[in-house]
Design a binder for these strands. Structure first.
Length: 403
DNA sequence: TCTGGGGTCCTAGGACCC
DNA sequence: TCTGGGGTCCTAGGACCC
């Protein structure tokens, strides 16, 4: 049976949500109407554009470029800071509203949802629901969304990306050739900056060109990815709307340092602070990690990562830090200026999936108690309430995000 | 004051086993 | 002895998404 899918995409999400918040607090200026961007902090060396207003876009400003570049294109550009707490709140409000239409909602990102409406169209049409959602979000939440209407997720997502803002678009099978095939191939979901030049070399310039290319040639050249891009270009996608809550498959944090660091003991301090955050999140999910990974980025933007499988799955800060520290030492070449350090845990399993030997059980229970006391305090008084004494110095410079 | 941070999935090569 | 090869696990790195 044909599925009925909607894709809801918030227009310029971070910027719109900031605008709505400013208006709510008595500001007269709607930053959606002027050249404005949401940007990182240049003093922390994270000065990039995270969202832009339509007027900023007209100046050629793109997401991901530096604020420096944005100012070159538009000297008067207004820059507003990021506020993830605000974004999360708005994302939740949107989700709550959408739940009134179906419980089969996949939160694809902080500002995008897929809705499976197949069983929820009693006496109504999919497109009517799309328009209703579009109207209600604007009226009740104050920001606008694009809604894509289709029979699978890929086509719904492509449709919501057509003209913006505040629009509803359909992309049914019979519309693929007229609405999608004339688009540049770079517009196709999952085709990024590395693949596009290769396709151009094959004289593939539009999505239509790709759709009409021999599938076997693409598979030969790109493997699995080749098959996927051919299917997407032809509007083929049988993936389900994943509406059930899923625990993460990996958890990580990384930070760009205020200045390049060459002192390994300093890197160790920062690594410990990051490890504490990561393992705290890990324990809140009741998960254990099997793999620890440490990442370094040098001054010259060269990335390196080393990982290691643990002898036994754990969420213990001390055990995971010991491994992370070893990885750091094994990969750090003395004297190299480091710009970014990060650590993540992978191959996560449920806490109760682990069968411990009696011997390791006693020791791990002791460690678990220590972590638990600290976690409870953090949960009660906020993440930064508890810090290691030896870490206080580093906390001053590296402000850790509240969770 | 030039280039974030958090994810998922895939590939390729080496080790090891049978 | 004329040096195969499939399967699995592990690690490093890359591509892509928002």
């Amino acid at each position: 049976m044909e599925r009925q899918i909607l894709h809801v995409d918030v227009n310029n999400a971070f910027l719109s949500w900031t605008a709505v918040d400013m208006l709510k607090h008595g500001c007269n200026l709607d930053i959606r109407e002027i050249p404005a961007v949401i940007g990182g902090d240049e003093t922390k060396r994270s000065g990039i554009v995270l969202a832009k207003s339509p007027k900023a876009k007209m100046f050629g400003i793109t997401t991901g470029e530096t604020l420096y570049q944005a100012r070159m294109k538009c000297p008067g550009i207004r820059v507003y800071p990021v506020n993830f707490k605000l974004y999360k709140e708005n994302s939740n409000k949107l989700y709550q509203l959408l739940l009134q239409y179906t419980d089969k909602i996949e939160r694809f990102s902080i500002d995008e949802c897929f809705l499976d409406m197949t069983d929820y169209l009693i006496g109504d049409t999919l497109i009517n629901k799309a328009y209703e959602i579009n109207r209600r979000v604007k009226k009740e939440l104050g920001f606008t969304v694009n809604v894509g209407v289709a029979h699978n997720k890929l086509l719904a997502k492509m449709a919501s990306d057509f003209t913006k803002p505040d629009r509803v678009h359909t992309l049914y099978e019979e519309e693929i050739s007229t609405k999608m095939w004339q688009l540049p191939v770079s517009e196709l979901f999952m085709l990024g900056r590395k693949t596009i030049p290769k396709l151009y070399n094959m004289r593939i310039k539009t999505i239509g060109d790709l759709a009409k290319t021999d599938k076997q040639i693409l598979i030969k050249k790109f493997g699995k990815h080749g098959l996927m891009m051919w299917e997407y270009a032809n509007g083929i996608d049988n993936s389900e709307v994943h509406y059930k809550f899923e625990k993460p498959k990996g958890i990580g944090n990384s930070t760009t340092l205020p200045e390049d660091v060459t002192d390994i003991s300093r890197l160790e301090e920062i690594l410990l602070a990051i490890t504490e955050q990561v393992t705290y999140r890990l324990r809140r999910y009741d998960l254990l990690a099997n793999v620890v990974n440490v990442q370094l980025r040098t001054q010259n933007f060269e990335d390196k990562s080393h990982q290691r499988k643990l002898p036994e799955a754990t969420s213990n800060t001390k055990e995971i830090y010991a491994e992370a520290k070893e990885l750091l030492h094994e990969m750090y070449k003395t004297g190299t200026p480091i710009r970014l350090i990060g650590m993540r845990v992978d191959n996560l399993i449920e806490k109760d999936e682990l069968q411990l030997s009696l011997f390791s059980k006693q020791d791990s229970e002791k460690q678990e108690k220590i972590d638990k006391v600290v976690d409870e305090l953090k949960q009660k008084y906020g993440y930064n309430s508890i810090t290691r004494a030896g870490k206080l110095h580093s906390e001053e410079k590296i402000k850790l995000k509240d969770i």
